[in-house]
Write a protein that binds this DNA or RNA. Structure first.
Lengths: 149, 149
DNA sequence: CTAGATGCAAAAAGTTTGCATAAGA
DNA sequence: TCTTATGCAAACTTTTTGCATCTAG
């Protein structure tokens, strides 16, 4: 998941500079348990560090890293964007969003290749990426929700 | 798609009033060619009408209608929410979002039942709804994008 | 050295809220 | 009539932008 200098290499090859803030921001996402951080959370994660970044820098960096294909912007309908690191093989990133506890779990399977082909066929739509979220109740919340609901 | 008095009936049965604004807001979405309107667009659609609504009312109404199951909030990562009318048979609503022209096309097929079963099985996740968007280039933009890109 | 990046503060954009007034039922 | 809904304006939250300063290369 994002080899040591892939970031620097990619930035440099596109005429951007590799700054301590940019490195720290990517690191913050990789090191987070959730792997899907909002700008606010990224900012918070760096606030102690020596290479802290201003909010404006966080936003500008997240935008840039999204544009050059390092990060992907995801939206779980919370009124704020989240970002995740793009890994090797493509778009096998689906999310299970728990409506009870808010936890987001990843599904690492290629569920959609067949559907993408179908969409290309039937609609003449050239799929470049997709976003699939399942909303429901996660395994941990299911026992609890039986009583409460 | 939303029979004549379903709205009034549903509102009344839950102790809400059926106001001209609420009717107009649902009508605006149904009558729109896109079928996925943002709050701003709903507001704009009503601005000429006799039953125009203030922005605050639009937001409050969209929230309410979402909560009582008349509308569904969708998010295409544009930094603003959109709303669509929920129709009969459930969640067979997938979207093809064109990255060139921004147009959103609906796919009316049940593509995910199999996947939902798989997710329930493998992750113990009880799926209540899902959200699937394909991002790419639509049939109309494909010829154009060949030259420009 | 020099273009590109950062920080700070101000401004946008989208959404929410308080309160007096209007209007369904 | 009486409670819920609306309008208006102000407040909040998230994201963007201008500009002087700093820094990677």
């Amino acid at each position: 998941m994002l080899a040591g200098d892939t970031l620097k290499t990619k930035l440099r090859s596109l005429g951007h500079r590799c700054t301590s803030q940019r490195e720290a921001i990517v690191k913050a996402i990789i090191d987070s348990p959730e792997k899907h951080l909002s700008a606010e959370q990224v900012y918070g994660a760096l606030s102690g560090e020596e290479s802290g970044a201003a909010m404006a820098t966080v936003y500008r960096t997240l935008d840039l890293l999204e544009q050059i294909g390092i990060l992907r912007k995801v939206d779980f309908g919370e009124g704020r964007a989240r970002y995740e690191v793009i890994t090797e093989s493509g778009h096998q990133h689906h999310h299970l969003v728990c409506l009870e506890c808010g936890k987001v779990q990843e599904v690492r399977q290629d569920l959609l290749s067949a559907l993408e082909a179908l969409v290309a066929d039937e609609y003449g739509f050239e799929v470049k990426d997709h976003m699939l979220q399942f909303y429901g109740v996660c395994a941990e919340c299911k026992p609890k929700s039986r009583k409460s609901r």
